[in-house]
Design a protein around this nucleic acid. Structure first.
Length: 501
RNA sequence: GGCCCGCUAGCUCAAUUGGCAGAGCAACUGACUCUUAAUCAGUAGGUUAAAGGUUCGAUUCCUUUGCGGGUCACCA
């Protein structure tokens, strides 16, 4: 049995008293005629004086006892409604029962007539009220008032750890948190609508994969008992979605969960939502155009504007977005022209000469990526395409014609954060096999240190894959941007936390 | 994983140089028949995250551990 606090024991006694009075604290049915909003609208749409009867349900969020009358607010999934209880209407016994047994947080059902109070608030004059579900644990206390139509909250439930661990309580007392997740759903729907309208079909590919790939990350490992097979939780959908292009689908996308066994931060959660799409007969420039249209469309559909506020910045998402070649952007910012340094050693020497401290083991591509991360990313507030990336960190992207070190790849940065990653997909099976080898992949699957080659993916390419542009986006990060949240944990309902014990 | 910061009543927060652990809300008792952060009077509520150390005395100083936040690193 859960150990109860003193406050909870008080409520448990009330629950027992309710049963003694012959009332079930957890009845199996409610009988609602109006939501809170419907009741208010029904009253407002009738001529003043014409009676509107309603039975509403919801959770008690405020109680103001005044002796022989009591005012409370209930909250349902649509809004709030004030209830007015009077001794004259309910009688001594019921009035006492309500005052003594009903607490903040309880779910109730109230039946009565709508009216307007002297202060103008549309209110239910209660004839009958009953318990729908007794709350034994009090909700985290907070008080609020409405000043100039705005909700002002006092002593809000704010401790991030408690809020994430008990998200149910967070949602119950912080309506703006509920709003974030309503917006989240709208954003995902808008992404789907945008792609659906352009002939993409949404598909579902395996989460449990015998070989993981498509991204640079360590996977979670699991095991299928009957098949005696190790499996990995996917780190990307890429290799499966591109198999579908081999199969004849021209435009596919998937929105789903990826799992990466890496560090967590304000923009990384161990499991996160990814959107990937693949578009036959398109290249990365076509994908850039589609990307800026898609993000602007979603912002407009969800927020009614393509201008957003994020982290104190005003960000304009309307197309076209700035397009900067990675090499030029780096020359501009660091005075280092990566084209002049085709090897890791020469580039590292130049970085040292310019006062940087590159790590010793890095490949050329990783050195360039570190320059990007440190000198470009933090300042890229307005949406920007950075394009043409080092080949050695982009094993699935097609080379830029005439430039063996560079591939047709772009990333999008907004608000100082990477949002998207896309490229002209490599569809040459022999080149692809060579890239896998260069990346340190190996045909020996039992070597834990090396990523095994996905031979089946190569087999698919041998059948022929149409030229295509592919795209990946961190959906949680898009939601951060559109809801102005500084942490990914604020846009994921149940972010991963370490266990308490 | 490194470094920095935090953890005090159900919630939000105080506590002087190391000197009796406090407030508001919530709870409980009472008053109050149009209130809305209702108001007024009173009561109760604590292993100060945990363990250890220094000290006459530790919420405060030190060590270790746990959890969280930030930051850096890692992230073919």
């Amino acid at each position: 049995m859960i150990e109860l606090t003193e406050l909870e024991r008080v409520r448990l006694e009330k629950l027992n008293r309710l049963r003694e009075e012959g009332m079930e604290p957890y009845p199996r049915q409610a009988n609602r005629t109006h939501t809170t909003q419907e009741a208010i609208l029904a009253f407002k749409s009738k001529a003043e004086g014409e009676p509107v009867e309603a039975t509403v349900v919801g959770r008690l969020r405020s109680i103001r006892k005044m002796g022989k009358t009591t005012f409370t607010h209930i909250e349902d999934g649509f809004g709030r409604l004030q209830l007015y209880l009077r001794l004259d209407d309910l009688g001594d016994e019921w009035m006492a029962l309500f005052n003594e047994i009903f607490d903040l947080g309880d779910f109730v059902q109230a039946q009565g007539t709508m009216f307007r109070t002297r202060t103008g608030e549309v209110t239910l004059h209660v004839a009958d009220i009953l318990m729908l579900a007794k709350a034994l644990t009090p909700l985290p206390a907070s008080k609020e008032e409405v000043v100039d139509e705005k909700r002002v909250v006092y002593s809000a439930f704010a401790d991030p750890e408690a809020r994430y661990r008990q998200r149910y309580a967070d949602l119950a007392v912080n309506p703006e948190v509920r709003d974030i997740f309503r917006t989240r759903t709208k954003i995902v729907r808008a992404l789907q609508r945008f792609l659906d309208d352009r002939g993409f079909i949404e598909v579902e590919t395996p989460i449990l994969q015998p070989i993981y790939g498509g991204a640079a990350a360590r996977p979670f490992t699991t095991h299928h008992n009957q098949l005696h097979q190790d499996l990995f939780l996917r780190i990307s959908f890429e290799l499966y979605l591109k198999r579908l292009l081999v199969g004849g689908f021209e435009r596919v996308y998937e929105i789903g969960r990826d799992f990466r066994n890496e560090g967590v931060s304000f923009k990384h959660n161990t499991e996160f939502t990814m959107l990937e799409f693949y578009m036959a007969y398109a290249d990365y420039r076509d994908v850039m155009t589609l990307t800026e249209q898609m993000v602007a469309y979603v912002a407009d559909q969800v927020l009614g504007s393509t201008t957003i506020q994020y982290n104190g910045h005003t960000i304009d998402l309307s197309p076209p977005w700035k397009r900067l070649q990675l090499r030029e952007a780096l020359v501009d910012k660091t005075k280092i022209d990566i084209a002049k340094y085709p090897t890791a050693d020469s580039l590292r020497q130049e970085m040292v000469a310019q006062g940087h401290e590159p790590s010793e083991q890095s490949t050329r591509g990783k050195l360039i990526e570190s320059l990007l991360d440190h000198y470009l990313e933090p300042d890229l507030i307005q949406p920007t395409f950075i394009y043409d990336y080092p080949r050695d960190i982009s094993p699935l992207a097609k080379s830029v014609p005439g430039d063996p070190h560079t591939v047709e790849r772009f990333e999008v940065f907004v608000g100082g954060m990477e949002l998207c990653n896309a490229f002209t997909e490599l569809n040459d099976p022999l080149d692809q096999e060579q890239r896998f080898q260069e990346m340190g992949h190996d045909y020996a699957v039992d070597d834990k240190e090396r990523h095994p080659v996905d031979e089946d993916y190569l087999r698919a390419l041998l059948y022929g894959m149409p030229p295509n542009g592919g795209f990946g986006m961190g959906v949680d990060r898009l939601i951060m941007l559109l809801t102005d949240q500084a942490s990914i944990r604020e846009v994921i309902l149940f972010p991963h936390l370490r266990s308490k014990d």
